[in-house]
């Protein structure tokens, strides 16, 4: 039924979440659970890899909005990388690039995390 899944990886101190499939109102809860898990494990440097994310609905975007404030308050960030063009368009239409670091590649995003750490 659910055609969405979240894979967990780490790169240094960055927690990487690989999103697969379609993120909509039905599957949003899975991403919520994934981010909550990261928070519980104190992994607040979260990188969303969207290379396998085929679709995102407004409810899916809402998940990022729901947690970004908390994550930033606890010193971390949610960065988004490697979105497919169509999915990026949805982020872009709503102005998400103004609110989130949305990078073309995962490496860039990891780099950005380490820059922030260096500061």
């Amino acid at each position: 039924m659910s055609n969405f899944s979240v894979g967990f990886r780490t790169s240094g101190s960055v927690q990487i979440l690989d999103l697969h499939g379609e993120l909509d109102a039905h599957t949003a809860a899975e991403l919520e659970a994934a981010i909550q898990k990261c928070q519980q494990e104190n992994q607040v440097r979260i990188l969303i890899n969207g290379s396998d994310l085929l679709y995102i609905s407004s409810a899916g975007l809402g998940v990022f909005m729901a947690y970004i404030e908390e994550v930033r308050e606890s010193g971390g960030d949610i960065k988004i990388a490697a979105l497919q063009a169509k999915v990026f368009n949805v982020f872009d239409l709503l102005g998400f690039p103004m609110l989130f670091d949305i990078m073309e590649s995962e490496e860039e995003a990891v780099e950005k995390f380490s820059e922030a750490k260096a500061e």
């Binding site: 407004s58 409810a59 975007l61 809402g62 998940v63 909005m65 729901a66 404030e69 239409l93 709503l94």
Partner: peptide, 8 residues
């Protein structure tokens, strides 16, 4: 609005 809700 709830934090995860927005309106376009």
């Amino acid at each position: 609005l709830d934090r995860n809700v927005f309106i376009s």
